[in-house]
Design a protein around this nucleic acid. Structure first.
Length: 260
DNA sequence: CGTGGCTCCTGGCGGC
DNA sequence: TGCCGCCAGGAGCCAC
């Protein structure tokens, strides 16, 4: 699930629950996936330290630590955070459990184990090393437009490419192209650059709107096709039957009626 | 360098 | 009911 808006909610959650509390103990009850960090290094950096501020870039959350580095979270397809005060509230499929000095806990959950944790020097260094594109909410129009240049594939492909622009995944990319009235299969080139203009403001609007609804689908406007991801459903805008198709290897929903 | 296919994982669902 | 194949909202790696 976690794309930019979901990850932003995780950041806010971390912010509201787990800052400025010394970490007493780190437990990995199950195999954990680390990135650019050895398990031997991981635990000593965290224990006795504390999280003092949070940051987000694309689909990553970072929690600043004392001593010039930070703890990074990536959530994969099925990751989340859970803060709780009593052990009985612990979620299943925790891959890391942090015990804080005040007696509460922070759990990192990753059902499919596709998420990763890591220690990074800082956000900038990490983003450069991973060659991530600009964050979808921070990028300017000019930079945004350039992601479609020199590409022969479908419009959807660069939007989902984290090295081109970071933060969008399958679901919200479909949502953005739906709202912008552009078919995901339309080729990037050759095309008049004016054709991409609606995508940029739509992208910002959709992402901000979803964040405002705390990324809870039950609070989205009924017209969001994000809620209509099963074959044969009708377009909430024009009533045309939605189609689904593999684009860039992912299941893509679009409305053949108004997405041209 | 860009693109498409395969792979990593686990769990839920529909079909038989 | 039980088993099996397929699919899922992410992303790295490889061959072309």
């Amino acid at each position: 699930m976690p794309e930019l808006p979901d990850v932003e909610i995780f950041r806010q959650y971390l912010d509201a629950t787990s800052l400025r509390q010394p970490i007493d103990k780190i437990v990995s009850p199950d195999t954990i996936r680390l990135w650019e960090t050895s398990p031997r290094k991981f635990q000593p950096v965290l224990e006795g330290n504390q999280l003092h501020k949070t940051m987000r870039d694309g689909k990553y959350v970072f929690a600043g630590l004392n001593g010039n580095n930070c703890l990074g979270f990536h959530f994969g397809m099925s990751g989340s955070l859970k803060y709780f005060k009593h052990k009985v509230q612990r979620p299943s499929r925790m891959r890391m459990l942090v015990r804080l000095r005040n007696g509460s806990y922070l759990a990192y959950v990753s059902v499919r184990r596709l998420g990763k944790l890591f220690i990074a020097k800082d956000v900038k260094t990490f983003v450069e090393r991973r060659r991530l594109g600009p964050d979808a909410l921070a990028t300017d129009f000019h930079t945004f437009q350039s992601i479609f240049q020199n590409r022969s594939g479908s419009t959807k492909t660069p939007l989902m490419n984290q090295q081109a622009i970071s933060g969008l995944g399958n679901m919200y990319t479909d949502e953005i192209l739906f709202q912008a009235g552009i078919r995901p299969t339309r080729k990037c080139t050759p095309v008049d650059s004016k054709e991409w203009q609606p995508i940029y403001p739509t992208m910002k609007t959709v992402l901000n709107a979803v964040i405002k609804k705390r990324a809870q689908p039950e609070r989205f406007p009924r017209s969001y096709p994000t809620l209509h991801r099963s074959p044969g459903e009708k377009c909430p805008k024009c009533g045309t039957r939605l189609k689904n198709k593999k684009v860039g290897g992912r299941t893509t929903y679009y409305c053949p009626g108004h997405q041209n």
